[in-house]
Design a protein around this nucleic acid. Structure first.
Lengths: 152, 152
DNA sequence: TATTGTTATACTCTATAACTATA
DNA sequence: TATAGTTATAGAGTATAACAATA
């Protein structure tokens, strides 16, 4: 049974794709993409981290990190600083503009969240949030990263 | 607020991506991909439909449908039949093997569903299903198609 | 010799548009 | 002229591996 009516797994992947697409459209107005927002957020939370650490935390390829940071640096949103102890590493930090833009992106995210859940009552919303967190924990999904994890 | 703790939209896109990836890995053993399962299912539900209709229902590009059907036909899972009234259209149908394989894929989907929701009690599972259906309806997502919808 | 970041390349995926055969 | 299906091509995105600087 449970084969013809959608099922939770299918609904999740359908709703999740929809949520991601919609969020992407919303942050596009800031010149950002969902992964770039994740990068900014991670640098904000752990300023001074290296590109390797960033790649590890977010499950990104190092070469992809280079491209992202190139972009963000060119736009004056993040800075690269060579390590003094180990001159191979690049320490990342947000500029004032980067912090400002991340703030706007987080506001967009909050408005996106509200708009997406508009059909739910506050009680349903809290219920759904709890169930999803439960499910995410059971699959050992970390709150930070997503979508970028490579496999095989 | 609601910016630092994940939020429903983010959890959905994270869990949804995870569910889709896992399902993809599971049907890979049958030589299928999630979109191919969707194609088989649609042909099963509406046998004799044309490639254009299939593209319309699933939100696929016509050229993509050609590639999919080429693949499935070569493997003896579906048949193409020229229309008699209008000889431009190709009517699609499942072979016995196609029906058989779709059945196996749906079993895999059911087992995937159970495994994915293992951490939930039957009550939580029913609750979550209802909430997700509610949310999906509010976003006017059709039960059939997903992930393939093109935009802009 | 190993590691950080970088560059170059190859590979897949997708979308667009040209083409044919029918209408 | 318009449409169904097909083919060819170009573009984006992603992964792999070669490379330079430093350890």
């Amino acid at each position: 049974m449970a084969a013809d009516s959608p099922g939770i797994a299918f609904l999740l992947s359908q709703l999740g794709a929809h949520a991601a697409t919609q969020f992407g459209a919303r942050v596009e107005e800031l010149g950002l993409t969902p992964p770039l927002v994740g990068v900014l957020r991670m640098i904000s939370v752990r300023p001074g981290l290296s590109q390797q650490q960033l790649a590890g935390e977010l499950g990104l390829l190092p070469s992809k990190v280079v491209a992202f940071v190139d972009d963000l640096e060119r736009r004056g949103l993040v800075t690269r600083t060579r390590g003094t102890r180990d001159r191979r590493v690049q320490h990342l930090a947000l500029t004032a503009e980067g912090t400002e833009l991340l703030g706007e992106a987080l506001e967009v995210a909050a408005r996106h969240e509200d708009a997406f859940c508009l059909a739910l009552t506050p009680e349903e919303r809290a219920q759904l949030q709890a169930l999803l967190e439960h499910l995410a924990r059971s699959h050992e999904l970390t709150p930070g990263a997503h979508g970028h994890r490579r496999m095989r």
